[in-house]
Computed example of a mutant assay.
Amino acid sequence: MPGACCSDCGGEVTANKSPSYRHQVFELPEPKLDITEYQLFHGRCQQCNTVSKGTLPKDTSDGQMGPRLLSYVAVLSGLYHLSVRKIQRLLQDQYGTHFSTGLISEAQGRVSSMLTRYSKW
């Protein structure tokens, strides 16, 4: 506010040291998916003719959905009672990507299985 002028007389305004008013605006972040692609190669040993294949890193999800997306699908179905088709549509609308109803259903089953396994402890 340095150099501000009084709206009534045009005189110089000296601002207070702390704000007298705060205005906060809340906004959702732009939704986006983080997609990681792993490219595995294979080759044949020139000496013994054995085929060697690349492997995924140990912490890689074994399906198309990572743990956060699996959790999101579980919350949408379990807590919000959305059908598989509604979850499919929401993911399409929100992230611009298409997951089959089979994959979404499989994700629900995987989370259910994990919860059952860990709830026995």
Results as ranks from 00 to 15, higher is better:
87 I>Q: 00
119 S>I: 15
38 Y>T: 02
65 M>P: 07
97 T>G: 03
18 S>T: 08
58 K>S: 15
11 G>P: 12
50 T>F: 09
50 T>N: 03
22 R>S: 10
61 S>H: 04
6 C>M: 02
30 E>F: 12
88 Q>T: 07
8 D>H: 08
120 K>T: 15
26 F>D: 06
109 G>M: 06
4 A>C: 11
52 S>P: 08
66 G>D: 04
30 E>I: 07
109 G>T: 14
64 Q>D: 12
72 Y>K: 07
42 H>F: 11
35 I>R: 04
4 A>W: 14
24 Q>L: 14
8 D>P: 02
100 S>P: 02
69 L>P: 04
79 L>K: 10
3 G>D: 08
17 K>L: 04
38 Y>D: 06
97 T>Q: 12
92 Q>A: 00
83 S>Y: 06
56 L>S: 02
95 Y>N: 02
31 P>R: 00
32 K>V: 09
115 L>F: 14
73 V>Q: 01
8 D>W: 06
43 G>F: 01
19 P>T: 04
88 Q>K: 04
100 S>N: 04
116 T>G: 03
17 K>G: 10
90 L>M: 14
20 S>R: 07
71 S>C: 07
118 Y>T: 06
53 K>Y: 15
52 S>F: 14
51 V>R: 10
108 Q>F: 00
77 S>T: 14
5 C>Y: 15
32 K>M: 09
27 E>T: 11
87 I>E: 01
120 K>D: 14
113 S>I: 05
90 L>K: 05
41 F>S: 11
91 L>K: 00
20 S>M: 10
41 F>P: 09
98 H>K: 13
34 D>F: 11
113 S>N: 08
92 Q>G: 00
18 S>K: 14
14 T>A: 02
71 S>N: 05
20 S>P: 04
57 P>H: 06
70 L>W: 01
53 K>Q: 11
97 T>E: 12
9 C>M: 06
79 L>E: 15
99 F>C: 05
28 L>R: 03
40 L>D: 06
13 V>I: 08
103 L>V: 06
39 Q>F: 14
84 V>M: 00
100 S>G: 03
105 S>C: 03
99 F>M: 07
79 L>R: 13
15 A>T: 15
79 L>I: 09
3 G>L: 03
58 K>D: 15
75 V>S: 02
30 E>G: 00
89 R>L: 09
67 P>W: 08
7 S>K: 09
78 G>H: 07
43 G>Y: 05
64 Q>P: 13
18 S>E: 13
83 S>F: 13
58 K>F: 12
84 V>E: 03
4 A>L: 13
74 A>Q: 04
119 S>K: 13
102 G>F: 06
12 E>M: 11
63 G>Y: 15
9 C>N: 05
96 G>H: 00
78 G>N: 03
95 Y>A: 10
67 P>S: 03
61 S>G: 05
120 K>V: 15
80 Y>E: 11
60 T>I: 11
59 D>Q: 05
120 K>M: 11
98 H>E: 15
96 G>W: 03
68 R>D: 11
39 Q>P: 02
50 T>K: 10
67 P>Y: 04
49 N>L: 02
35 I>L: 03
68 R>F: 10
115 L>N: 15
9 C>D: 11
57 P>D: 10
16 N>Y: 12
17 K>R: 09
96 G>P: 02
59 D>T: 13
